[in-house]
Amino acid sequence: MSVRQSLLAILNQGPCYGYQLRAEFDRRTGSTWPLNVGQIYNTLDRLERDGLVQKADIDADGQNYVEITEAGRAEVADWLGSPVVRTMATRDELAIKLAIAVTLPGVDIARVIQVQRSATMRTLQELTRTKNATADPESSDQLAWLLVIDSLIFAAEAEARWLDHSESTLSRSRAAGLAAPLPLNTDVPKRGRPARAVQAGA
C-alpha cells in the first residue's frame, strides 16, 4: 500500500513526528491525496509492529519522533525497485455504469457516453489550465506536483479515448443488430452462494 511505503521512504531521510510526516507527504504529492493525522498514526503503529520503524527522541515541544530501522530501509529499497501492480479487483464505477446501461431497455447509451465525455473533458480542461498557470518547476516539490498533475491529465485523456472507442464499438454493434437490451433472466438464481459450476463432461 503506497501510503505505508511513502511514509517509510520519507522517514528514510531522517526521524519525523506525525504532523511533520503528513506535511512532508502533502508537499511531495501536491496535496492531491490528503491524509488525516489519524491515518498517519495508525500507519506508524503498524510499521512499528512490523519492525520497520521505532520510537526515537521526544523534543522540547513534546513531539514524539519516529525513526526507520534497517528492515524499514530494506523495505523502501524493495518498494522503489518493484513495479506497482494494479489489481483487476478495483471497481471502475464508469465501466460498471456503461456495462449495466448497455443491457437496459430504453437507455440512450450514446447520451450516457456524451454526458460523461463532456464531464471528462471539463476535468481535463481544468487540469490543463491549472498546469498551464504554473511556471516551469524550480524545485523538486514543484516537479513532484507536476508529475502528479500530468498523471491526472493522462488518466482523464485515457478515459476520454476509452469513451470514444466505446461509442464506436456501440455504433458498430448496433449496426450489426447486437446491441439489444438484456431481459431479466427468468431462471432465478437460488438464495445463498451460487453452486460451483459443473465441469464440462463431468
Partner: peptide, 29 residues
C-alpha cells in the same frame, strides 16, 4: 487528441457532420 483539445476554451464534438455536444470548463475548480 483529448489532451490537446483541453487547451481550448470550448470543445465542440462533431459526429456525422453535426455538432453533438459542446464542453466548457466549469468556473469553479
Amino acid at each position: 487528441d483529448a489532451r490537446h483539445a483541453a487547451w481550448a476554451d470550448r470543445i465542440v464534438f462533431l459526429r456525422d457532420g453535426r455538432i453533438v455536444d459542446e464542453s466548457q470548463p466549469s468556473t469553479v475548480s
